[in-house]
């Protein structure tokens, strides 16, 4: 089974694009499953389920979503194998733009929205920079110039990755993405891999549930604005 991780800022069209990709794999008779990682609430697992594929959801709730992802990915991986999947897709929303759920040797795809602003490529950290493929959505409703500027900035943030424009609504561009997923993904033993970028070093008093404000309540790994 091949694991492929999809990530990107909220509301960029991840689920819509992923549904089109799933449909494309399903049409070829390839067994796929999808897991949605989210923070508070999601209905997206039902969207995947309605497509007739094994699906699952994980809500991180009070935990950091990226920590939650990485501590659950082995279980999710086993679940996929038990379901005899050939491809397992995970989807998660990058929230603070500091982290990424990407794992070395596991195909990592970032979905980013052209409407998120011309500066978003430099504001999104490892989520964009360390992806193997970057899919830009909603490019069809802006000018050619805006598309070209956005493309250039994504290139400069991530000169290693393959960059594509896709249309999540019409499915334009999806077929090629599916072909690239097949070519670039591979099977590997999950437990032997490492994260591409470390999770934040946290653990200050607020991680442990502190709610009061003020110097005396700030204990642990604290950084000052200076």
């Amino acid at each position: 089974m091949r694991l492929v991780t999809f990530a990107g800022p909220p509301a960029g069209g991840k689920t819509t694009v992923l549904c089109k990709i799933i449909k494309c794999f399903k049409n070829e008779g390839i067994p796929v499953g999808a897991v949605k990682f989210d923070c508070l609430q999601t209905e997206d697992d039902r969207i995947f389920g309605a497509m007739g594929i094994p699906s699952k959801k994980g809500l991180s709730a009070e935990l950091c979503p990226d920590h939650y992802f990485i501590t659950n990915i082995p279980d999710v991986y086993n679940w996929g194998q038990k379901n005899d999947l050939e491809y397992l897709f995970t989807e998660s929303a990058g929230l603070c733009n500091r982290c990424s759920p990407y794992i070395r040797n596991i195909l990592s795809i970032c979905i980013i929205d052209q409407l998120s602003g011309i500066n978003s490529p430099q504001k999104i950290g490892p989520l964009l920079k360390l992806a193997d493929m970057v899919l830009i959505t909603k490019g069809d409703i802006v000018s050619q110039a805006e598309r070209e500027v956005f493309y250039r900035r994504v290139q400069m943030a991530n000169p290693h990755g393959e960059i594509y424009f896709v249309n999540g609504l019409t499915g334009q561009g999806i077929y090629e993405i599916c072909e690239r997923i097949k070519e670039l993904s591979s099977e590997c033993v999950l437990e032997e891999q490492t994260l591409r970028f470390p999770m934040p070093m946290a653990l200050c008093s607020y991680c442990l549930g502190e709610t009061k404000i003020g110097e005396e309540y700030q204990i642990g790994n604290v950084k000052k604005i200076g």
Partner: peptide
């Protein structure tokens, strides 16, 4: 270039 494209 199409009808639906706008500056944003």
């Amino acid at each position: 270039l199409s009808q639906n494209m706008n500056f944003v």
